[in-house]
Structures are given as C-alpha cells and as structure tokens.
Amino acid sequence: MTGFHTAADLRHACELKAAHPDATLIAGGTDVMVGLNFGHTSPAALLDVSRVPELREWSREDDTIVLGAGVPYTRIVDELGGALPGLARAARTIGSAQIRNRATVGGNLGTASPAGDALPPLLAARASIELASLRGTRRVPARDFFLGPGRSVLADDEIVAAVRIPVAAGAEQFAKLGPRNAMVIAVASVAVTLDPPRRRVGCAVGSAAPTPVVAGDAETFAGAELDWDGRRELPASVTARFAELAAAATAPIDDVRGTAGYRRHAVAVLARRTLTWAWQEYRRS
C-alpha cells in the first residue's frame, strides 16, 4: 500500500476519490481492517472518510431522514429509534458496542454483503442511496443498488454520501438468526415495514441470496390481505402465505454457516414472526 488520504469534507473526499479511483474508502474500518490485518486484502491506498462532517450527520427533510453514510450504528440506535425503528432495531443486532461505535451504514453498503444487517431495513423501507462524485450527485433506489455479493452500482469515483429513508409510517420490525446469542453474522434476516396510509408492506431478506433481496410477492400479497381499517387479528393463513412467499424470494446457498434448506426455512419463520409483531404493534397503535 502506498497511500493514506484523509478527506476533510465531502467535496475533498470526492476529489481524492477521483484522483485515486483504486483507493479503498475507509469509514468505521470494521470491514476494511479485518481484511488488512489478516493480509487477505491489499488495497493500493486508503481514503479515510471517517471525519467527513457531511457524512457524520443526519437530518430530517419532511418525511425523510437523510442519514449521512458515516453515522455510526450507536447513534442510529440512540437517536433514530423513533423515526426509523426498523433500521435502529437492525443496528442494535450488529456486532458489539465497540463495533457499533465505529461501523456505519455507508460501510455496510460498501461491503455489499448479503449478510449486511442494515440492508434489509433499507430495502423494506424503500430508501434511496445518494452517491456523490465530482460528476455530481445521483440517487439510486436501495432496491437497485446491489448487483451481487460484494458488488453494487457504486462507481470507482463515487462515495455513498447519505441514505434517504422514509420516516416510518407504521410499525417496523427486524429479526435475524445466528448460531450465537450475540455477535453473529446472520444466517438469515428479515425486515418488515408497514405503511398504513399507503396500505403497503415492505419486506426484505438478508443472507439468503447473493444480495439482500426484496420479497415483492410477499409485499403485494400482504398489502392486499391485511385488514388495514378493521385492524383485525392476522389470520394464520395470511402469515403462512406471507412466510412462504418471503422464502420463495430467496436463493440461498449451503455454506459453513448453514444449509440452503435451513436458511429458507428460517426466512419463512422470521417473516411470519416479524409481520405478526408489526401487525400487533399496528393494532395497538
């Protein structure tokens, strides 16, 4: 490695990235440094964005939270539990206190792992991602961001500046499954959002396909079947079908952390539970 560049602000970060397209961005470092310490990766240079002020802030624009890509999870948990309960719940399941103090949504997007726990909530909530470069800023729906494991639409000269997430219009849930009761990479995860004004459900699944995926059929089904006005209890047939459709949206693999069959099963169970919990919350509200 031959360089270490520190960006002072977003503009500077974009300039540096344009000048060093092969430099690896580093924010919380919780993915980047693991690769470096183990000698598994050897990037040409590091570009530190951990102190870029624009990335470290969040703000509210009408019904949207504009979340700087570099806001660590601890702050999301502490500050955004009301506006973005799904993301905040997911953030709380990530790593440990020390990890959450550093790690960021921008890094989770940059790593683009199917197991990124912040990602299903973004997909479920139909967030969009703001990408900045010297060429300007563009917005990409989170649902279109991922191309494959570790791959996204992010260009060499671009930086994730922010994520624009609709303020929760209703209950949101997130649950994951892992072989340990803390500090685990998800074997499967599910995020569900309810949007009663639009009569819309969001549902996305992690760790069960090459990328986090939207369970579109499950969303459509639930959106139509839920008794938004009467708020009656969910019939078991609805949750069961929803679970089935969520599982059908996945394309899991066997690996050292779990078999494909188990992942699919887990997605169904988690989808059923998260929808049930969200619905209970909605009924109480």
Binding site: I26, G29, T30, L36, N37, D48, Q98, R102
Partner: peptide
C-alpha cells in the same frame, strides 16, 4: 473485532483499536 481485548477510547468512544487504521 471479535474479542474486544484491544478496546481503547478514541476521542471518548470505546472502540476496537485493531479496527482503526493508525492514520484515522
């Protein structure tokens, strides 16, 4: 980042020192 044996304060925040690049 898994064991926390390297935990230090970086500007008042508890972090894993093994996951902070020295330049940061």
């Amino acid at each position: 980042g898994e064991c926390g044996s390297c935990t230090v304060y970086l500007d008042e925040t508890a972090v894993c020192a093994c996951l902070v690049a020295a330049g940061q």
